[in-house]
Simulated scan of single mutants.
Amino acid sequence: MKKQKIEKIEPSEPSMQFVLNYSEGREQTSRVSKEEIRRAIENLDKYGDVWLSNCRTVITPYGNCSGISCMVVPDGNPQVAVYFAMTDGLTRYVSGGYRTDDIVRMFYNYFERLEIPEISDWEKGYYTPVSPDDEPYYLYVDNEEYKYITYEDVLAALENLEAGKCTLMLLKTPGCQNGYLEVRGTKDDYIVETGGIMKKEIGWCS
């Protein structure tokens, strides 16, 4: 059985926002907890692939990390993958042969401390997705997720941020393939972060 090594990454402030995605059987959620992570990994046969994605990339020696996932493979041994954002797609490092408890520990380390496994000997691959033009944008305000949003909903979130009713607003697609816009902080001290190219009809980036 492989031993897990950890590469420590210093966390950034404010705390990272996460989304837990399931390939089937359950809606994605931004209300991520250690209990939810363990339940997902222990029920891979029910949920299929499980992906813990962060709303801002984490800077590591291997690149800007965008998430960690585990998936069922035909031989029955789950694989773990760590993803890194590129300008034209994703770089993925994959390895298998881990016990469920080891996988849970990897997810916990990433969720709580932004630590990735030691992946220097993992298989490396590249993924260039086809841009899903019809993929909708979701709005995240602090830990709340909103679907089926309008332009007015985004403006209302920005107004709430200015009024001090929330501290973070994030606009992105579920697959993170059409860019994102994040605004966080307090009045007169905002941090605005964008990534990729957002669809023109949103009106944020060209």
Rank of each mutant, 00 (worst) to 15 (best):
D188C: 09
M169S: 03
D75P: 12
V130L: 15
F111Y: 15
N77L: 09
V104A: 15
D102N: 14
I116F: 09
L158E: 09
C65R: 02
K124Y: 06
Y138G: 10
T60P: 14
C65T: 10
C70N: 10
V50I: 10
I191W: 02
K147T: 12
K124H: 07
D102V: 06
R184C: 11
L171H: 00
Y140N: 04
V82A: 09
E193Q: 04
T194N: 01
K124I: 03
A163K: 14
G175Y: 08
M198Q: 08
E182D: 03
S120A: 12
R113W: 11
N54W: 00
C176W: 03
V73H: 03
V104S: 14
K172G: 01
V154T: 09
A156S: 12
Y126D: 11
T173S: 15
P174F: 00
I149F: 04
V183P: 02
D75N: 15
V154N: 02
Q177M: 10
D101E: 15
L139C: 05
G125I: 07
D88L: 04
I116P: 13
Q79K: 14
K187R: 15
Y83G: 06
M169D: 00
G125C: 15
S95A: 15
R56H: 03
E152T: 09
V80S: 12
E145P: 06
G97P: 13
V94W: 05
I68R: 10
M106V: 12
S69E: 11
T167L: 03
I103Y: 14
E115D: 15
Y180H: 09
K172N: 10
E182A: 01
Y93N: 05
I116S: 11
D189N: 14
P136E: 03
P132R: 15
M106D: 12
